[in-house]
C-alpha cells in the first residue's frame, strides 16, 4: 500500500517535470502523436525503481494521501494560508520601509495540540511564513519556540491563542 502510494506520487512528479505532451510533435500532415511515449515509459521505470528502493521510508499514513476528506481540507486550508501570507508580507514591508522601524522582537513559547510529526512540521512551516513569526526550535514534540517581530504578549496562553490557533483547526483535520 505504502509503495503503491509512493509509486503514484513519483510518477505524477515525473510527468510534471518531463511534460511529455507537446503539440509540435504532430507532423504537418496529421501523423504522429502529441504524447511522447518514450518519456512516459521511462517514467514508469524510474517511478517503479524509486518505489522499490525508498518506498518504505517516506510516509507514515499512505491512506491519507488519497482520502477525499483530507484533500478537501487541504483545498480549504490553502486560501486561508495565502491570506495570512499576504497579510504578513504587507506588515513586514511596512516595518522595512518605516523610517523608525517600530519593531519589538523577542522569543516566546507556544504549545500545540497536534500529535503527528508531519502535522507539527506543517504548523512550524506555516508559522514561519505568516505574520512576523519564525519558529526557532521544537522541544518535546509540542512546545514551539517562536521568534516574534512585534511581541504582543509574552505569556504562553495568549501567545498560543494569537499564533497557533488560526492554523491548528485546519491542520488537525488534515493530519490526524
Amino acid at each position: 500500500m505504502r509503495r503503491i502510494a509512493i509509486f503514484i506520487v513519483a510518477y505524477l512528479l515525473w510527468c510534471g517535470l518531463a511534460w511529455p505532451y507537446d503539440q509540435n510533435h504532430i507532423a504537418a500532415d496529421g501523423t504522429g502523436t502529441a504524447w511522447d511515449t518514450g518519456s512516459l515509459l521511462l517514467g514508469l521505470g524510474v517511478a517503479l525503481l524509486v518505489a522499490i528502493l525508498f518506498g518504505g521510508a517516506l510516509t507514515n499514513k499512505p491512506k491519507n494521501l488519497f482520502n477525499p476528506l483530507h484533500i478537501f481540507w487541504v483545498i480549504v486550508y490553502l486560501p486561508v494560508f495565502f491570506y495570512y501570507c499576504i497579510k504578513a508580507n504587507l506588515q513586514v514591508v511596512y516595518l522595512v520601509l518605516h523610517p523608525d522601524m517600530p519593531i519589538k522582537p523577542g522569543i516566546v513559547k507556544v504549545k500545540t495540540k497536534l500529535t503527528s510529526e508531519s502535522g507539527v512540521t506543517a504548523l512550524a512551516n506555516s508559522i514561519t511564513l505568516t505574520p512576523g513569526t519564525l519558529t526557532v526550535d521544537v522541544i518535546n514534540d509540542n512546545e514551539l519556540y517562536v521568534h516574534w517581530l512585534v511581541v504582543e504578549s509574552a505569556e504562553e496562553d495568549k501567545a498560543t491563542e494569537i499564533i497557533v490557533n488560526r492554523f491548528e483547526y485546519f491542520l488537525e483535520k488534515i493530519f490526524d
Binding site: C85, I86, V96, L134
Partner: peptide, 18 residues
C-alpha cells in the same frame, strides 16, 4: 536595514519567498 540575524531572517525569508 534590520539590526540582528533573526529579524533579518524574518524579513528576507517572508518577502523573498512570496
Amino acid at each position: 536595514r534590520f539590526p540582528d540575524v533573526y529579524t533579518r531572517l524574518q524579513a528576507a525569508t517572508k518577502c523573498v519567498t512570496l
